[in-house]
């Protein structure tokens, strides 16, 4: 084993702390700005000392339209996550246990899905949803796209969890007279809870953060928060304090998820590539 001297160690951790500060800096700046009054923001001299205020948050949260958009985001995020998980784990189970397709087919389709730029989907999704499915300007239309986008990945990640469930467990249940649905819902699902949690975090985050499809599929009533923010920004006199407060509100759920499940998230980001 190599020896590390004490000065080396100090320098080493100093570099790591600097990198962390760089990583966190813009996010902290957003937080600080959201706590500042207009006069402090427009002050030409940068100050770290200012009277923190919750005024931006209170005015943002008292705006009924923003509350509505936050509600829309939450509804779309939760329902699409739930649907994706239910359909995804059923499909993953069928693929693993009944030897449908191969692992290759699933990881290739996950990879292909990952590759599609969201902008490419805007034209067909807008046209089909509006003119054929009658789902334009409808939250359920948005849910439908998000479920479809997330399914390949969820199937891919749940597969590896289901493969680890001992088949004997299922056979025992079957001998006791359980039908395939009972085996799945009462025996398999409880065992793969960690996988479900990882998949849920991933799906919810994508639905919560997504912007461009939400922009073309929603109207004044069905907007999600990211769309609202972007429209707020194009106005001439930008109220940065309020914008940053809204930005924080959007950023909080993903930040919490990151602290809860950083390991699973890293696995997810390399989906379909590093371990095929």
């Amino acid at each position: 084993m190599k020896e590390y001297s004490r000065t080396n160690t100090t320098v080493f951790y100093l570099i790591l702390v600097c990198l962390s500060l760089m990583s966190l800096g813009p996010i902290v700046l957003m937080l600080l700005t959201s706590l500042k009054l207009k006069v402090d923001i427009f002050n030409e001299v940068s100050t770290f000392i200012f009277m923190p205020t919750l005024k931006n948050y209170s005015s943002v949260l008292h705006d009924p339209s923003l509350m509505r958009y936050l509600g829309n985001s939450l509804y779309v995020g939760l329902i699409s996550t739930l649907l994706t998980l239910v359909m995804g784990c059923m499909a993953a189970y069928a693929i693993v246990r009944f030897r449908f397709m191969g692992r290759d087919a699933v990881s290739l389709s996950t990879l292909l899905m990952r590759m599609i730029p969201p902008a490419v989907l805007t034209v067909p999704v807008f046209a089909i949803w509006t003119f054929q499915y009658q789902l334009g300007n409808n939250l359920h239309g948005l849910i439908l796209v998000y479920v479809a986008i997330n399914l390949p990945f969820v199937i891919w990640i749940l597969q590896s969890f289901i493969e680890q469930v001992p088949i004997q467990l299922e056979e025992a249940a079957r001998v006791d007279g359980a039908n395939p649905f009972q085996v799945f819902f009462l025996v398999v699902l409880p065992v793969i809870k960690p996988g479900l949690a990882a998949a849920a975090i991933f799906t919810f985050r994508i639905a919560w953060n997504e912007f461009i499809l939400a922009l073309v599929l929603t109207n004044r009533a069905t907007r999600t928060t990211p769309v609202h923010i972007s429209l707020f920004l194009t106005e001439h006199n930008i109220d940065w304090g309020q914008i940053m407060a809204m930005g924080m509100l959007i950023a909080i759920p993903p930040i919490i998820f990151t602290f809860v499940a950083s390991k699973q998230i890293i696995t997810g980001m390399t989906a379909g590539a590093v371990k095929g």
Binding site: I229, I255, M269
Partner: peptide
Amino acid sequence: ILPMMIAPIV
């Protein structure tokens, strides 16, 4: 990984 997790809009 925080910068990659928050919404691109933000």
